[in-house]
């Protein structure tokens, strides 16, 4: 318990979390601190490339185990189930319409890349090993929840769910972040240690600094959302905290059942607890135009992400450690 408390306090006082807090405070105080769009996009592209590449190199070194299939199937199955739980919880506890509830549910079944990265940083801080193939698992877990969300919405005609179109399929499967993440993963896998040596000064050394800049930008966006969150009610705010706990529990149960080691188990729990804010929002605008983006973006980005980043990550890691002894 002492170990996890010191890890939790080290996490709270890490540059990544503190830069995020700085961004939130700057936005709440209405500072004029902003990131030019091109810079912010560049940071996101760099992170996707670095995360994917490093994961691929790790798989090249360690080899691909059968575990990757079982963990990917488990993660994707949870990605289908979580939106159903989220949808039922929202319809029972809040006054959200069915389209918005289904869109929120899809966000909570999908994953957040940055939460995953923060999780890997916490594991490194605690000296806990994990496998590079978890990056591929993460990419595979992005889309099942979108399908589940659309299925939930299609059950109610008033939600006006759109039929799967070319635009939607392109958004879901060829979303820029997914393409870069998987592409960089494949390149890392093919080139291995040789490739890593060639681009290490770009991929590895500046990674944490760039992550801090990205977190600052995310803090600014989250703070701006919080400031204008007029549609936030107590049941919705509570959902943004208990839903990641339900997700983490599902991830821990599923990961424990297939015998994951502690590092991978914690990462699966983190993925299941996290909510998307890059791939899913654009897909939901296309597929569920009646759903209110102000609700799903505020919940996933301004509430659940900070909760996971500060309290959730050490909690999920502690639970994974307790389970695996």
């Amino acid at each position: 318990m002492d170990g996890i408390l010191s890890l939790a306090s080290a996490n709270l006082l890490s540059p990544v979390v503190l830069f995020f807090a700085l961004g939130i405070m700057a936005a709440l105080a209405r500072s004029d601190l902003t990131f030019p769009e091109a810079v912010a996009k560049g940071l996101a592209l760099y992170l996707m490339l670095a995360i994917g590449f490093k994961g691929g190199v790790a798989v090249n070194e360690a080899g691909l185990s059968l575990q990757v299939i079982s963990v990917a199937l488990t993660g994707m199955a949870i990605g289908f189930v979580l939106p159903v739980i989220a949808y039922l919880a929202l319809r029972r506890t809040s006054r959200l319409d069915s389209a918005t509830a289904a869109a929120v549910a899809a966000h909570y079944g999908s994953i957040s890349v940055v939460t995953f990265v923060a999780g890997t940083e916490l594991l490194r801080l605690g000296g806990i090993a994990f496998d590079g193939h978890m990056v591929a698992v993460m990419a595979l877990m992005e889309t099942p929840a979108i399908m589940a969300g659309l299925w939930l919405a299609s059950r109610d005609p008033s939600a006006k769910a759109q039929k799967a179109s070319g635009d939607l399929l392109r958004e879901v499967f060829l979303n820029g972040s997914v393409v870069l993440l998987m592409g960089a993963f494949a390149i890392g896998w093919i080139t291995g240690e040789k490739g890593m040596t060639a681009i290490k000064p770009f991929i590895d050394d500046p990674f944490r600094g760039v992550l801090c800049l990205f977190m600052l930008d995310m803090g600014l966006i989250a703070g701006t959302r919080l400031r204008s969150a007029t549609k936030l009610t107590w049941p919705l705010a509570a959902f943004a905290v208990y839903m990641p706990l339900i997700g983490a529990t599902a991830g821990l149960a599923g990961g424990y059942a297939i015998g994951l080691p502690v590092g991978n188990l914690a990462l699966l729990a983190i993925l299941c607890a996290s909510a998307s804010y890059i791939a899913v929002p654009a897909a939901m605008r296309l597929a569920l135009p009646q759903a209110d983006p102000a609700v799903y973006l505020t919940l996933s980005l301004a509430l659940t992400f900070p909760f996971n980043l500060t309290l959730g990550l050490p909690l999920y890691l502690w639970a994974a450690q307790s389970l695996t002894g």
Binding site: D217, Y277, I278, M284, A294, L297, L301
Partner: peptide, 14 residues
Amino acid sequence: ESGPWREDHLTRAE
């Protein structure tokens, strides 16, 4: 009609 919006380069949903 649904209130103010700002360009948001992260999600692009609005």
